[in-house]
């Protein structure tokens, strides 16, 4: 495309970013991989020995691993379901003509900008608290026994909190896609005798497919590493009822100082995330060509 001179300049301009990211990727990744084959505990410095797949065996056969894996999938799946369905609904609502659309839009997207620790604590204390929380007050007002949400339904409660934060993201993306739908296409379908329902399923939904895929994949990447919400609400409990994979690794690492098995867990988490990442990257890559 261009002259030799500009191409050489281009290489120099790209170099810092590429080199930095390369180091950022290779060094910690290599270390994680290396640690995962060592018996290495920070409480017993100098006692590192090579254990082969010992850490993996320890981590993967720990019953807590399966609970955490299940919790991770439930958290991701539940949040996805809530945000994609809710987001589609909200996007369609916000696409209708009504008074104060701009303001309602702002209200709807606001939760996305609330930092995880704040949203978790606000929900935990002021809404879900079994004695003084707003939900308890409403329940009592309606004649029900208040629920201790985070103690009896910890994973569900965390899903609600996380979904509240991610709903705006899904809504915003689906709304953007919705508004890029060609009016003439809809009008052509109307002329062809399609009603609102068949327009939704035959025109709107296929048009949204791409946005919905993007939402699903990107949210999955982020939701696989939900951490702060668990840390400040349940601490993974009761027991390990709301421990997900990142939290389990965090416990191994910074509470039990077991670098070896935390690293093995880290490798497992990386593999899990990569399964999703492959699809996401492929999709974005296709877009890049267009």
């Amino acid at each position: 495309m261009a002259t030799l001179q500009t191409q050489t300049a281009a290489r120099f301009m790209m170099a810092p970013a590429v080199v930095m990211l390369l180091v950022w990727m290779i060094v910690p990744l290599g270390m994680t991989l290396y640690f995962s084959f060592l018996r290495y505990n920070l409480l017993m410095p100098g006692m590192e020995v090579f254990t082969g797949f010992g850490n993996y065996e320890f981590f993967l056969t720990d019953p807590a691993f399966f609970v955490a894996l299940g919790n991770t999938l439930l958290l991701v799946g539940g949040t996805l379901l809530a945000t994609v369905v809710g987001g589609t609904f909200l996007a369609i609502l916000l696409d209708q003509p009504f008074w104060g659309r701009g303001i309602v839009r702002l209200l709807v997207i606001a939760p996305f900008f609330v930092m995880p620790t704040v949203s978790a604590l606000v929900w935990k204390n002021m809404l879900m608290h079994p004695v003084n929380g707003l939900f308890a007050w409403i329940a009592r007002g309606l004649g029900f026994e208040p629920v201790d949400w985070l103690a009896t339904l910890p994973l569900f409660s965390i899903t609600v909190i996380v979904a509240w934060g991610w709903l705006p993201f899904a809504t915003l993306i689906i709304l953007t896609a919705l508004q890029s739908l060609d009016r003439e296409q809809k009008e052509a379908a109307e002329m062809d005798g399609a009603g609102p329902v068949s327009i939704f399923f035959h025109i709107t939904l296929p048009h949204l497919a791409r946005a919905l895929t993007a939402v699903t994949l990107i949210e999955t990447i982020f939701l696989l590493s939900v951490f702060a919400e668990i840390l400040v609400t349940t601490g993974g409990g009761p027991g390990i009822a709301s421990t997900n994979l990142p939290y389990l690794i965090y416990i191994q690492a910074l509470l039990q100082y077991d670098v070896g098995s935390a690293s093995a867990g880290g490798v497992v988490a990386i593999i899990l995330a990569n399964i999703v990442a492959v699809f996401l990257i492929r999709m974005i890559g296709k877009n890049l060509e267009a």
């Binding site: 495309m1 261009a2 500009t6 191409q7 300049a9 281009a10 290489r11 790209m14 970013a17 590429v18 990211l21 950022w24 990727m25 060094v27 910690p28 990744l29 270390m31 994680t32 640690f35 990447i221 696989l224 590493s225 951490f227 994979l245 990142p246 690794i249 965090y250 690492a253 910074l254 670098v259 935390a262 690293s263 867990g265 880290g266 490798v267 988490a269 990386i270 899990l272 995330a273 990569n274 999703v276 990442a277 996401l280 990257i281 974005i284 890559g285 890049l288 060509e289």
Partner: peptide
């Protein structure tokens, strides 16, 4: 503005580093 043969690959690779779960590299960074 001066895309080369590998520009697209570099972009995709950069993206893939973002997909790395933080918890996977918690220990080394710490």
């Amino acid at each position: 503005f001066s895309p080369g043969k590998h520009t697209k690959d570099i972009l995709m690779w950069m993206l893939s580093t973002k997909m790395l779960p933080a918890v996977g590299v918690l220990m080394p960074i710490y």
